[in-house]
């Protein structure tokens, strides 16, 4: 009888082992396939964009596309400079406004705030980071646009109803600040307490500790946070589309209306079907966005590797 039970147990066990090994094999197939799919998607999208950009690239030299200020698809004029300048303006302005605030808020939450205050502020910021940007765009239409038009622009002697580059930058700064703050808080809080104790232990003040030790040690993480913020501004579509004014001209000041590369695609989308050359031009805009984002990520990876070595701690 005991041999019978033993036999039974052995058989059950070997069946079970068979099933486990099967699951092992199929899970590895599945995971490998998922990994290759990601690569294939990136390659596929880039190749498609490139292929569909060929008509415009064979019609006009790249240099004139990038430097011409004249955008009038109906007249076969395809100058991307206004949108490029608009994108650079919006990106730079948003980062200039957003990064210092995000860093300050993150340092406050991670190093200064205590108890309930800390929980409350951190939770609110996490919620803000998760709010869809179209909501910021809508609220901005009601609040920020008149505010900029009536109060901010006049201070700088500009005359505007309120839509334009500056408004978009301000709102995008507001969109990405909670997001960057949240990631920076995470980097700072993951640092070991020994770093703080070590620095304080030789007589440094709290601020000296933050400046010379914690910001460096968390540097690679903070750099990632800023870069992700940059990526969101650079590719932002809905907020600029709502607030930039949509005139394709080189902005004369930061309060001018304008265009960014993504809004160019959105605004002229209706003409895509009818005019093949316009379609190709807009797809080329998509290609530019992909290439710039890719170059930035690649560059960031190199910088990050350096930072991680230079600012490593233990």
């Amino acid at each position: 009888m005991t041999t019978d039970t033993n036999d039974l147990r052995d058989r059950t066990r070997s069946n079970r082992l068979g099933r486990r090994l099967l699951a092992e094999r199929y899970s590895s197939y599945w995971l490998t396939a998922a990994g290759y799919l990601a690569i294939a998607l990136f390659a596929g999208i880039t190749l498609l964009l490139f292929y569909r950009s060929l008509p415009i690239l064979s019609e006009y030299p790249l240099s004139s596309l990038l430097t011409s200020a004249n955008w009038d698809p109906a007249a076969n004029e395809f100058g991307f400079l206004p949108a490029i300048v608009g994108t650079v303006y919006v990106t730079v302005l948003s980062m200039v406004m957003g990064v210092p605030v995000a860093l300050g808020a993150a340092i406050y939450i991670a190093e200064y705030a205590e108890g309930r205050m800390k929980t409350l502020v951190a939770a609110l910021i996490d919620v803000l980071a998760a709010v869809p940007s179209v909501i910021f765009g809508l609220v901005a239409l009601i609040v920020v646009v008149p505010f900029v038009g009536n109060y901010v622009a006049p201070v700088f002697g500009a005359n505007t109803v309120g839509v334009g580059i500056f408004t978009v930058s301000l709102v995008m700064a507001i969109v990405i600040t909670p997001f960057m703050t949240s990631l920076t808080v995470e980097s700072l809080e993951s640092l070991p307490d020994e770093l703080r104790e070590t620095s304080l232990g030789v007589g440094a003040t709290k601020f000296e500790t933050i400046r010379s030790v914690l910001l460096r040690a968390a540097g690679p993480g903070i750099f990632s946070a800023i870069l992700l913020g940059f990526g969101r501004v650079f590719g932002a579509t809905i907020v600029p589309a709502l607030l930039i004014g949509g005139q394709t001209q080189i902005p004369s000041s930061v309060f001018s209306t304008g265009q960014t590369l993504p809004t160019l695609i959105v605004n002229d989308f209706g003409e895509l079907m009818s005019l093949p050359l316009t379609q190709s031009a807009l797809i080329f805009v998509g290609l530019m966005l992909v290439v710039v984002v890719w170059l930035f990520n690649f560059g960031a990876m190199l910088v990050q590797r350096r930072l991680k070595r230079r600012w490593q701690y233990r």
Partner: peptide, 10 residues
């Protein structure tokens, strides 16, 4: 003060 964990500043 020298902490328990050997700590190298960055």
């Amino acid at each position: 003060y020298v902490p328990q964990t050997p700590t190298a500043l960055p």
